[in-house]
Amino acid sequence: MTSDAAIEAIDVARTYALDGVSVPALRGVSLSIGHGEHVALVGPSGSGKSTLMHLLGGLDQPTSGRLRIGGRDVAGLTAAEMAHLRNATIGFVFQSFHLLSRTSALDNVALPLVYRGMGARERRERAAQMLERVGLGHRIGHRPNQLSGGEQQRVAIARALVTEPVVLLADEPTGNLDQATGAAVLELLEQLNTAEGVAVVLVTHDREVAARARRQITMRDGRIVADTAVVDRTASAGAPDAARADHAGPAGGHGTPTDAGEDRR
């Protein structure tokens, strides 16, 4: 049952050694993110949400506890295996876009496919399709410095989704954008979440951004202090959301999918 989750963490802790002193960043976190979910991860700085984000994205390994990404336990994986896991299951969107500045939008989007060993032709075809999907079909040859902030973040989103990941992790995706542009980017994410069935996890401390998600996980001092369903303003069906709230909890939340067919695989 739990292996159906896109990401599942059981009592995960992460401790950093600083000058011989152990500093706990996460003190036992359990959560499950289902396929197609839309989750906001909130909390003050220092609450451990970045650490949790890195763990969920397979960039780091827990000090203790179990972590499964895309059904695979990360314990004991080598750096190369972690890289492969990230490439296969995770899409990243960063606050500062993280695009290669000397590279066209098309090649930026195609970059993750390079590490799959995919040929240039297929890579570019897929990247072009993905840019079309995010509304930048007319900008494929542009370099990042020829694009607006909103367009750059759309390129980054296309790059995150071109690998058809299970989960898209977005770290303050609107942090560097003005309100209107940010709202457009969020709308795009929500649209892709619904249409592609990819789970979206947003790290933010913008309340308005967090309020748009259908599930909100609040962190403080390395622990999850709240995991609640939010009334969905966009979804027409209210019933599944109500049912969802019952399951919401530190160890739960993998329950009700938005797209039931997607979840049953």
Binding site: F92, L100, Y115
Partner: peptide, 16 residues
Amino acid sequence: TREIGLRMALGARPRD
């Protein structure tokens, strides 16, 4: 370094 971090996040192995 940032570019390296990005490439790693996108799936580049240490040997890549």
